[in-house]
C-alpha cells in the first residue's frame, strides 16, 4: 500500500524533528515536550506499521504504548519537580 508507506515516512520525519528538538531544547521542559510528541508519534507509527505488514495485532502494542507514554511523562515531570524542590532546599 502506497499511502501507508508515505504515512510511515512522514511519521519518521516528524520523529526526527522531535528528536532534534529533544537534543537542542534549551529548557528541560522542551525536551520533555519533544519526547512526549515522539511517544505519540510512536503510537501512530506502530498502528500504521501493523497495517503495512497486515498484522493488525500490533494495535494492542500501540494501546499499551499510549498508556506507558502517558505514565512515563507524568513520572518524569514528578521527578523534575522533586529535583527542583531539593535544589531550592540545598541553596537555602
Amino acid at each position: 500500500m502506497m499511502s501507508l508507506g508515505i504515512a510511515v515516512v512522514a511519521l519518521l520525519v516528524v520523529m526526527l524533528f522531535a528528536l532534534i528538538r529533544a537534543l537542542a531544547g534549551p529548557k528541560i521542559y522542551d525536551r520533555v515536550l519533544a519526547v512526549n510528541m515522539f511517544g505519540t508519534k510512536t503510537v501512530l507509527l506502530i498502528a500504521v506499521y501493523g497495517f503495512l505488514t497486515e498484522r493488525p495485532d500490533f494495535l494492542d502494542l500501540s494501546i499499551f504504548y499510549a498508556l506507558i507514554n502517558f505514565i512515563g511523562v507524568i513520572a518524569v515531570l514528578k521527578f523534575i519537580e522533586r529535583i527542583e524542590e531539593y535544589d531550592e532546599v540545598e541553596e537555602q
Binding site: 508515505i6 504515512a7 512522514a10 511519521l11 520525519v13 516528524v14 524533528f17 522531535a18 519533544a34 510528541m37
Partner: peptide, 11 residues
C-alpha cells in the same frame, strides 16, 4: 502527514 510535519515544523 501534512499536519504532523506542520506540528514538527512549529516545534
Amino acid at each position: 502527514s501534512v499536519l504532523g510535519i506542520t506540528g514538527a515544523w512549529g516545534l
